[in-house]
Each structure stands twice: as C-alpha cells, then as structure tokens.
C-alpha cells in the first residue's frame, strides 16, 4: 500500500537547513494498522503530510499503491486525496459553516456524486458513527468527540483504502478517545489500512504495529 524510499524533507530556518525527515524507509501493507509515535518536532506530522499527498518530499520516493506520487500532477494528487485517502486531524478541521451532514458530503461533492447519492451515503455514515440525530447541527453545536466522529465519517465518505490520522484523540477526553480509537480498530478489521500518529504510548498500542520516529528517522518500537 505504502512504500517510502529514503524520504528526506528539509526546512530552512535561520538560513540553516533543518532536516524534518532524514531518510524514512517505511512499508505499510494493505490492511495494516500502524502507529507512528514520536515527540513533537520529530517529523511525524511532516511524514503524514507527505503520505497524505499534501506535501512533497525533497528527496527520496513515495509510492502509494505503486504510484510514484512525486510525478503526479496537482489534479491527480487531489483525486488520490479525494478517493484513496481519508484524513482525520487532531483539531477535526470541519467546515465551520456547514452542517454535520454537509461536511460529510463535501468529499463526495468533489468526487462528483449526485445530491441524491451524497445524501443517502451521508445518512448511512452518520448512522455508522451514531450521530444521525445531529445531521443538521453545525460543528460549533457539537462536542469534541462528536466532531471527531463526524470527521471520521467524512474521512470514509468516498470509501478510501487508507485512513491517515494525526493525533485524532489529542483534543478529546478519555471517554471520547476510546470511542474514536475503537472506531479505528473496527475500520481496520473491515479492511482499511490505518496509519495513526500519536505521542501517546497507550494509544499506539491499539495498533498492530508501532513505530517510533525520532529526529526524522524511524525505528521499530
């Protein structure tokens, strides 16, 4: 599913090159559940951006389903993000002026589904995350846990193979966290490949496989 070869990413800070990623070799098979753990500044978010086709690496290669992402045009990368990858972010990143259902429908809108198809699937996804009764609520009217469940439903909108989660429980209390984490486990059982980034060891243990990133390099935990 995912294969990276010697990924490097540098930033310029105070006229000095800083390595955020310094040679990442990562392989994630289809159906795997990988957690990537690391302290802040270790490069884990940078890695997720690259894996999610939100950013390009400076050096090295990234193959998603065997496709060299670096060579893709903008439009193709947008299509990958739309239908192959589902994102779950720490601060949910829901559209503030769209209702829960509309937020879930957004990726389907970009995919080109008809309003009828979108509506039907959004209702079904809301049921899956047990929030059917909140369909018309704005994100500001929902709790953090509910927001994250809406975000997960949105990530599943176009039935992606890969779920990328960046500290998905970072803003949630313990109860909401365990609900959300259980969802990832269920999704993985249903065959989705999950890559979860966290700095919390107990959360990392939910995954089948845990990796640790430190100073831009990955080690096995």
């Amino acid at each position: 599913m995912i294969e990276t070869v010697d990924l490097k990413k540098t930033y310029i800070a105070r006229n000095k090159e800083v390595y955020a990623l310094n040679g990442i070799n990562l392989q994630v098979d289809k159906g795997d559940f990988v957690s990537i753990m690391g302290p802040s500044g270790s490069g884990k978010s940078t890695l997720l951006s690259i894996l999610g086709c939100l950013d390009n690496a400076c050096q090295g290669s990234y193959y998603l389903n065997g496709i060299d992402v670096k060579r893709l045009k903008d439009r193709k990368r947008a299509q990958l993000r739309n239908s192959v990858i589902g994102f779950v972010f720490q601060s949910f990143f829901l559209m503030p002026r769209l209702s829960a259902a509309e937020n879930i429908e957004l990726p389907m809108l970009y995919y080109g589904l008809t309003p009828k198809e979108r509506h039907k699937r959004a209702q079904w996804l809301l049921e899956c995350v047990s929030l059917s009764d909140r369909a018309n609520h704005l994100p500001s009217e929902l709790s953090g846990g509910q927001c994250q469940r809406i975000a997960i439903a949105r990530a599943l909108a176009n039935d992606p193979e890969l779920i990328l989660a960046d500290e998905p429980t970072g803003n949630l209390d313990q109860e909401a966290s365990s609900v959300v984490l259980d969802m990832f486990s269920v999704l993985n059982e249903q065959g989705k490949t999950v890559v979860l980034i966290t700095h919390d060891g107990t959360i990392a243990k939910k995954a089948k496989r845990s990796l640790v990133i430190r100073n831009g390099i990955i080690n096995n935990a």
Binding site: A78, Y110, R154, A157
Partner: peptide
C-alpha cells in the same frame, strides 16, 4: 487559509 487547506485535503481540485 485553513478552510482552503481542508478543502484540498478532502480532494477539492484547484479548479473547484
């Protein structure tokens, strides 16, 4: 900016 970022993450094309 962030909204645009979200739209892009969800697969909105530049055209959209």
């Amino acid at each position: 900016r962030q909204e645009i970022g979200i739209m892009k993450a969800l697969g909105a094309s530049s055209g959209q």
